[in-house]
C-alpha cells in the first residue's frame, strides 16, 4: 500500500510567473524510507509544503493512506504525520518542554511523554532552557523531537540532520530506525546529504527543475548506473591499443582520462559484463593489464550526473 501518492502536482508562484514544481508524481510505499533529492530550488520544499497544505496546489492530486485529500482542508490527516521543516522556526521564549507541550495540545491524539523524555535524553536536549538561548544544532534537536513526538504513521523531514554533529546524526538515524521498527512508519526525507540518504533510504526520487527525473530503489539505481573502471597497462602502447578498441567497440563508454599506461572510463553495466568477457578471453589480461578496478557509482555521483548532463538517459548515469 502506498501511504503517499502524488499525481501531476503543479505549483507556480507570483500568480503563475515563477515555477515551483511542474509535474511531480511519485508514490511512497508504507514502511519505506523515501529519499527526496534535489539541489536548492529544484522543488523539494515546495512539494513537501504542498503535501502539508502550507501551499495551495495549482493542479494535481494528493492521496494519503489511499484517500484523495485537499491537504489544506483535510487537516485531521495531520494527526498521523510528523513534520520537520527545512528552515526551522521555533518560539524563542519557550523552552523545549513548553514547545512540545503546546504542539501536543494541537494534536487530537495522545502523546507519549515517556518516549519524548527518552529521545530528549538521547539527543541531549536541555528541556528547561529557552529555545532562544540554544545553539543551531540544539534547536534542530528540538525540531526533531517535535517531529517525532507522536506515534505518527508518516515522518516528513526536510534536511533533518542539518546542524547536528556526526554523533547526533548517527543517534538521530538510530532513533528513527527504532521508531520505524516499532511502528512500521514511513519516513520521507528530503536532503542534500547524499551519503546519509544512500545509507538510510531504500528508495529515492530525484527532482530537477520541478520535475521528477528518476525514481527508483537505491540498490536498483546503483546497479543500473555506469560503472567506473580503471586499468593499468604494462606498456603505454598496450593502453593506446585498448583505448582504440574501447572507443570503437563500446561507443557508450565515456573516457574520463588516460595518460601513460593508465586509463579511467565509465561504462554501462551490460557493456561492463561484455568487456569482462574479453578480459576472460585473455585478450588484455596477464602481461598486458597489470591492475584493474571496477567501482559502483555512489548515489552522490548518480545525482551529480543528472545535474551535469541534462540529456542523460535513465540508466546511463554515473
Amino acid at each position: 500500500m502506498n501511504v503517499i501518492e502524488v499525481k501531476n502536482l503543479k505549483k507556480y508562484y507570483n500568480r503563475g510567473k515563477v515555477m515551483g514544481i511542474e509535474d511531480i508524481s511519485f508514490n511512497v510505499p508504507q514502511g519505506s524510507r523515501f529519499g527526496f533529492l534535489g539541489p536548492n530550488g529544484a522543488g523539494k520544499t515546495t512539494t513537501v509544503r504542498c503535501l502539508l497544505g502550507l501551499l495551495q496546489i495549482d493542479a494535481g492530486e494528493i492521496s494519503i493512506f489511499g484517500d484523495k485529500i485537499d491537504p489544506r482542508v483535510d487537516v485531521e490527516i495531520r494527526n498521523r504525520i510528523g513534520y520537520l521543516p527545512g528552515e526551522l522556526g521555533l518560539y524563542k521564549d519557550l523552552n523545549a518542554y513548553q514547545l512540545i507541550n503546546y504542539f501536543a495540545r494541537l494534536y487530537d491524539v495522545d502523546i507519549d511523554w515517556d518516549f519524548i523524555k527518552d529521545v530528549a535524553k538521547r539527543l541531549k536536549i536541555d528541556m528547561t532552557r529557552k529555545i532562544g538561548e540554544l545553539s543551531k544544532g540544539n534547536k534542530q534537536k528540538v525540531g526533531v523531537l517535535a517531529a517525532i513526538m507522536g506515534k505518527f504513521d508518516i515522518l516528513i523531514m526536510d534536511e533533518p540532520t542539518s546542524g547536528l554533529d556526526p554523533l547526533m546524526q548517527s543517534e538521530f538515524y538510530r532513533i528513527i530506525s527504532e521508531r520505524q521498527k516499532e511502528s512500521n512508519c514511513t519516513v520521507f526525507i528530503s536532503s542534500h546529504v547524499l551519503p546519509e540518504v544512500e545509507k538510510f533510504c531504500d528508495r529515492v526520487a530525484i527532482i530537477k527543475e520541478g520535475k521528477i527525473v528518476e525514481i527508483s530503489d537505491v540498490q536498483d539505481l546503483k546497479e543500473k548506473s555506469l560503472k567506473k573502471i580503471e586499468l593499468d597497462f604494462a606498456t603505454k602502447s598496450g593502453m593506446k591499443a585498448f583505448h582504440s578498441y574501447l572507443t570503437s567497440k563500446f561507443p557508450e563508454a565515456v573516457v574520463n582520462y588516460s595518460f601513460d599506461d593508465h586509463i579511467s572510463f565509465l561504462l554501462p553495466p551490460k557493456e561492463t559484463r561484455d568487456l569482462l568477457k574479453y578480459f576472460g578471453e585473455k585478450r588484455w589480461n596477464g602481461e598486458e593489464i597489470k591492475d584493474f578496478t571496477i567501482q559502483h557509482s555512489s548515489l552522490e555521483s548518480i545525482f551529480l550526473q543528472y545535474y551535469k548532463d541534462t540529456n542523460s538517459k535513465k540508466g546511463e548515469i554515473a
Partner: peptide, 13 residues
Amino acid sequence: NKTIDLVLSKPIK
C-alpha cells in the same frame, strides 16, 4: 520567523 510552519502542519484549521 517560520514558527507558523510547525503550527499549521499540526491538525488545526
